[in-house]
Amino acid sequence: MTYEGVLTKMQTEFSNPIQYYLVFENSFLSLNQLLGKELEIVHQGYQCLECGKKKKIFRQGFCYDCFMGSAAAGDWIMKPELSTAHLNIEDRDLEYEKKVQLQPHVVYLALSSEVKVGVTRKTQVPTRWIDQGAVQAIPIVEVPNRYLAGITEVALKSLYADKTNWQKMLKGEIPQADIVKERKGLQYVIPNEVKEYYDVDKNELFELQYPVLQYPKKVSSLNLDKSPSFTGKLSGIKGQYLIFEDGTVFNVRTFEGYVVKISL
């Protein structure tokens, strides 16, 4: 059986374990059902997720022109503290930026490869944590816009990492940590503008389990530009990665906008 289309990040369903789906224009794959089975991935071309043109992907599923010009690729995406829509100041497209920035955001602690701090829109809970491969997560504050979330994250970066060590995460090397206790000690670190949103006693802990038959001891990344055809037996799915029996891992999100053929 063969599936063809443009890669976009895997869709997920919060259950035990997490359910994963690859969705194409005219079909979809339920990936959990493929565990223990062999599949082939063949790179066939590119299609920008923004303009739809068959141009080489530069970053985040965008061709170079769209990445440099699209409101969906502004610097505030990766650095929420640069958000300015609450001041009515435009970066690339104020209408779009207001729509995304001026909505509830959650600052959280997550346990993936270590305890990390992060920001997500409330509508992306718990999807954001699943995409990071976190095994536990706990909201710290919910604030009304992206800027307030951003300055809170910046303050907490003095205590926690803000990126996941993807190799440790994929090898299942998770340290012991009590993120409920960690959260309780943050009232003196949170910026003054955000203190009103922090409740020391609100501890909503999320536990996440992934469909992994076997964690690899070593991992090596599949790069479709260097290896346009790959065949392997699927042994797990975690974060936005497919994990294969030989230790090869494939970051679906990295290759958004790539046209592929997947054969079972």
Rank of each mutant, 00 (worst) to 15 (best):
L82V: 01
V219P: 01
A71P: 04
G239P: 07
G150F: 13
L87S: 02
I57M: 07
K99M: 13
Q103A: 15
Y198K: 09
L186D: 15
V6Q: 08
S220E: 15
S235F: 15
K195S: 12
V180A: 09
L109Y: 06
K37I: 02
F255W: 15
E97R: 08
E153S: 11
R253S: 11
K116R: 06
K54G: 00
F250M: 12
V119G: 08
T84A: 09
G232F: 08
Y96K: 05
I151D: 13
V249G: 03
F244I: 10
V200Q: 15
A134D: 09
A161E: 02
G185H: 00
S227N: 09
C63F: 07
K9A: 11
S158A: 11
C63V: 07
L205R: 00
T127W: 01
E182D: 13
C51T: 03
G5L: 07
T2Y: 02
D75V: 14
Y215H: 14
L49K: 04
S229I: 14
S158E: 15
S113M: 12
C66I: 04
A73Q: 09
N26R: 04
S227V: 14
D91R: 11
K79F: 09
S15N: 14
G5Q: 00
P144K: 09
L7S: 03
G172K: 14
G52I: 04
Q101F: 12
L186W: 11
V135S: 13
S235H: 13
K195M: 09
T120P: 14
Y46D: 05
E90A: 09
T120N: 04
A71R: 01
E173T: 08
W166M: 10
Q132D: 03
K122L: 11
I77Q: 03
G239S: 06
L186E: 11
K53T: 05
D246M: 10
A134M: 05
V135A: 05
G232H: 07
Q44R: 13
